[in-house]
Design a protein around this nucleic acid. Structure first.
Lengths: 345, 345
DNA sequence: CTGTTAGCGCATTCAC
DNA sequence: GTGAATGCGCTAACAG
């Protein structure tokens, strides 16, 4: 009852007194030259009948969907922002972006979504942090659909045409530098192993930072898994009387740490310095403001889409890097600023 | 080069030594009874050839896509969570959910996405806070695609088959009650007119609350548009010496207010009480914790999908309410708790 | 410039 | 149970 009868190009053709080919030409601007008059007639007819092109039929016929599939761990936080930028950028390139969430890196859901996207015959794929592993990915994807990874390190060429990553290891490394330079005599990283590769990169960066800038300093590694934030900080300040620098897995964790510190009345930044990552709304608007690392979303989205579309449209891609790494920008806020005066209502 | 040759049911049929109809039957479990042996053969052939059903062809043929389109203002915050739940729930019902962001209620983007979804011939549509207005919506949607609204009040039947809304007006009303009961002698609402209908509902609730519980109390309305948070609070405490109750548009705004208050050393909750809405991560993890209203995401998603799918599959929908309203749950935290002791490291 | 025709991959009557 | 035929709506070569 709902869908009475689809209006097709046949209807439009009849109504306009032309052939269906002409209608198709006019309505898709395939570069085919058509007389003004015909165009007008067709467009009029289309409007009057309320014609709407059936994308499935179009996709079936031409072997291309102009659709890109995106799989991310979730819609919240930075992934949501990422998706928004990618959606926009994809549109600019003439593609649509279909977004699926793997609900926090659930391999099964991931697989299912991937399957659906491939059944949809998307032209390309973008995935963030594939949890299902390389082998599974290969067996599924290896049918010729180009795949670009976000935050995927060291993936073989036969699976992914490349990746665009955030310089999160570098960020953590430089966080160590900042903290050490500003008098921290103990450096800590509070991670989140549940986030797999991301956490791994963070740890790598932290390790590098320690080696380069933290020689002789105390250090500590923790994981939020069942972490008692207040207990942790209490312990830390008891164990070490100097200034402690804490690097959080992300701004969310940073907020928890900050709240705990505030509750415990640990002076920030004098006794405790804190750095998050992502430069979320949280970091910008908490009190004190949390120092963090800003993500170049736009650049990133552009790189990802370009990489993919270049491949799809056989562009030259002169000197394209397979694995691109985008540096993050340090946002210096109150949790690490020593000299700045802090608020005077 | 990339897509060598699609494996079709024809190939599978040949490889299995059966007809394409049989393959179709087996691979879609259409309830058609087939011999065990044939099934095995077909499935084997399909696996060996790496067959993957072409959804476009299937959708074209049977006039149904099993796809639902969702348009939300963004992927972040509660919308993202909403989308995740809807995606899950849709899957349970046997549908896929395609999510588009209107980038903060941009009517043009909204229109474009709607158009795409309809060209995709989605079976149904879910929209949150259509910004483009009823007339525009009617002219676009009115082709027979069922539309369910989220937070849509008083939409005519010929456009939407119904809506499932959050009781945000009620929440604001009850916020007034809480604040008044706990000794606030001035009630304020800090809104966000940019969020149109949502803000409208908040205002309605605030108005109701004032009338019912705030007679004789001072009150104030503000909008975050160019609001100087610190200035605003400073002004408030100067103007009024009693306890001030502030209701924020959402937890994001609440965080800003909280940070400003902390910076100004305004005692919370003794001098200033604060209530957000959404029960975001922020509210749960800030210090002090922000009292807020929890959203029943799962129930909501279930209601929405059920409403839509019932319609799609012609189910009875006995006693279905056209406009369903789901109450929010108050989460009492430190910004409104007078008697609780607050942290003792 | 415009019309004719042959698929795209699959689902679905019907006969067998 | 299984197989041949028809159509879903559109595009892309070709003819005209």
């Amino acid at each position: 009852m709902s869908k009475p009868k689809q209006v097709t190009i046949v209807d439009v053709a009849e109504h306009a007194g032309v052939s269906i080919a002409t209608v198709s030409n006019v309505l898709n601007r395939g570069g085919i030259r058509t007389s003004k008059e015909t165009i007008r007639k067709v467009e009029l007819a289309a409007n009057e009948l309320g014609y709407r092109r059936n994308i499935m039929a179009a996709g079936l016929s031409r072997q291309k969907t102009f659709e890109i599939g995106l799989i991310i761990p979730g819609f919240k936080s930075i992934y949501g922002t990422l998706a928004e930028h990618l959606q926009l950028e994809a549109h600019h390139a003439g593609y649509h972006l279909t977004v699926f969430s793997s609900n926090g890196l659930d391999p099964d859901i991931e697989r299912r979504h991937l399957e659906v996207l491939l059944q949809r015959r998307v032209d390309g794929l973008i995935c963030h942090g594939l949890a299902m592993g390389m082998e599974a990915t290969r067996s599924i994807v290896n049918q010729g659909t180009p795949l670009v990874l976000i935050n995927g390190w060291n993936w073989p060429e036969d699976i992914s045409i490349g990746s665009v990553n955030f310089g999160i290891a570098g960020a953590n490394e430089r966080s160590c530098k900042v903290l050490a330079e500003r008098g921290c005599t103990m450096l800590c990283y509070v991670g989140h192993k549940g986030s797999k590769i991301i956490d791994e990169q963070r740890r790598i960066g932290f390790g590098e930072g320690l080696r380069k800038y933290g020689s002789g300093l105390l250090h500590d590694l923790a994981d939020i898994q069942e972490l008692d934030y207040e207990g942790y900080l209490t312990d830390l300040v008891q164990r070490h009387s100097g200034r402690i620098g804490v690097i959080a897995f992300d701004d969310n964790i940073a907020l928890k740490l900050l709240s705990a510190a505030n509750k415990l009345h640990i002076p920030i930044p004098d006794r405790l310095m804190l750095i998050g990552i992502n430069n979320d709304y949280i970091a910008m608007n908490s009190y004190p403001g949390i120092s963090s690392w800003d993500i170049p979303y736009s650049d990133h989205a552009r790189s990802v889409i370009h990489k993919l579309v270049n491949k799809l449209e056989g562009k030259p891609e002169e000197g394209e890097v397979r694995e691109l790494e985008l540096p993050l920008t340090f946002m210096d806020r109150e949790t690490t600023k020593l000299t700045e005066e802090m608020g005077n209502g």
